[in-house]
Amino acid sequence: MIGDVLTVAWKEWRELLQLGGSHRGGRFSLVILVAVFGVFLPLQAGAEWVQSPATVFYWGWVPLMLVGSAIADSFAGERERHTLETLLASRLPDRAILLGKMCAAVAYGWGLVIVMLLLSLVTVNVAARTGPLLLFPWRFAVGAPLLALLGAGLAATAGVLVSLRAPTVRQAAQTLNVGVLLLVFIPILGVQALPDSWTSQLGAWVMANGVDGVLWVSAALLALLDVGLLFAAFARFRRARLVLD
């Protein structure tokens, strides 16, 4: 099973790496994102970049943008290019196909986040270091990649659910973009809509547990969402339905 997952992921990676002329726009957006999170924002924040709790939470949602484009293509792209039925007619088990596609997208998003994180460290050290090396505290050094991984997982599982039924890559990408926007704005608006007593209780809880508490609770919530969506994707994967779609 693991071998089959890696085989599918290998193919997905080969396709991602071979993206041609029509995807140059996508590559350009990628360079912009890496420049913003790896250079521009660290330059703006200076030494605060490695100390600010806000920084660590960036990395939970950055992969949502990165993974979205790759995962939208996973099934909708195969359907659009008429390669899906041949893949389904192979000996690959359902879960290997699903997990292989998700693993490739997660590795892509998470790998880029790690590159951005390292680049941001280089940037702040070049631009703002006055004494010893500027490094993330250990809980940020663990928490940021963990949140990024779980964020990438969320985008991959939600994205595969959309891509399984979307007739075209464009439609899958549009649906996912709306999803990402909702994911960002619903918590913000949701917190504002809470009764005052709840907001103050929440504030008190954050004060009592600190950044660490918020970090681990966020990670736990993301992990729960990831697992839930993963099982939903397993349930939604039906060869007969995919062939007829």
């Binding site: 080969r14 041949t86 192979s90 000996r91 690959l92």
Partner: peptide, 30 residues
């Protein structure tokens, strides 16, 4: 499916990949 081969209605090749990569992928699959 394990013991069959199929050329279906569409050729099902990954057009961004080379011929060798297409075959290498399905060789790994099988």
């Amino acid at each position: 499916r394990e013991k069959s081969g199929a050329l279906l209605e569409h050729h099902g090749l990954y057009e961004r990949l080379s011929a060798e990569d297409n075959l290498a992928f399905y060789a790994r699959v099988w």
